[in-house]
Amino acid sequence: MPASPEHSGNDSLVKVRGMRFARGTRWIFDGVDLDIQRGKVTAIMGPSGTGKTTLLRLIGGQLKPHAGSIRVDGEEVPRLRHDALYRLRKRMGMLFQSGALLTDLSVFDNVAFPLREHTRLPEVMIRDLVLMKLQAVGLRGARDLMPSQLSGGMARRVALARAIALDPMMIMYDEPFGGQDPISMGALVQLIRLLNDALNLTSIIVSHDVQETAAIADYIYLLSGGRVVEHGTPEALNRSPSPWVNQFMHGLPDGPVPFHYQAPPYRDDLLAGVQAGRDRR
């Protein structure tokens, strides 16, 4: 399903067209079209297992699609060679589910890592930049802690500080709200929106936390069965007539996606146990 005309256009930082990707014999994506607008927070949501994380890996060039095109800032990602791909990645930030901090480095060194690797700035400047990034996420005081001493929420905020270290043009968030307590969740939600607006970033959030994501997203894509089922602003999706979208957006336990896993009829299943017991005697 192509993106609606008023949404796609020259403002798209990421353009995905007709993308197909398979793992083994299973098609994870079967003709996906997406547009991620510059400067906006776009959410990609869907049930667990639809391959949302895979989509981020495809956009970041860690995986290659079997068909279709993925353009980031005009560059065709699957066709980029090693050096060009790494150059593009310097302009992308990615926040992994677990934070993916380097465990043998302190918080400070973790945030300084991309600066030390990719720039020739003197240590004095790097120190200032690291402190500024940590201040933005509220963890300037935690600079000397090791990753093993951080809580999950703190680790994610450090990873966020690291992701913005090189002032990228876009950030991809992989399930940022999973397993968070309400306070750190609230802090993270605010941070994502604030950073997006303050640094003029483009944010892509992959999540299935409808409430939190819908609160800050400018546009939402709903994925299921390897395709884009529906897309639009959060308000439009909340009012959507589709029963599946309605079930998903409002968290209803039963609907087009059934509650019960496929099974034989309940009465027959129970009675079969009684019969088996009788047969044994």
Partner: peptide, 18 residues
């Protein structure tokens, strides 16, 4: 397993070289 290699890739640092 802890996605550190993947994280490095996305920070434009080649884990094979690093």
């Amino acid at each position: 397993a802890t996605e550190q290699l993947s994280g490095m890739e996305m920070m434009a640092v080649d884990p094979i070289r690093q």
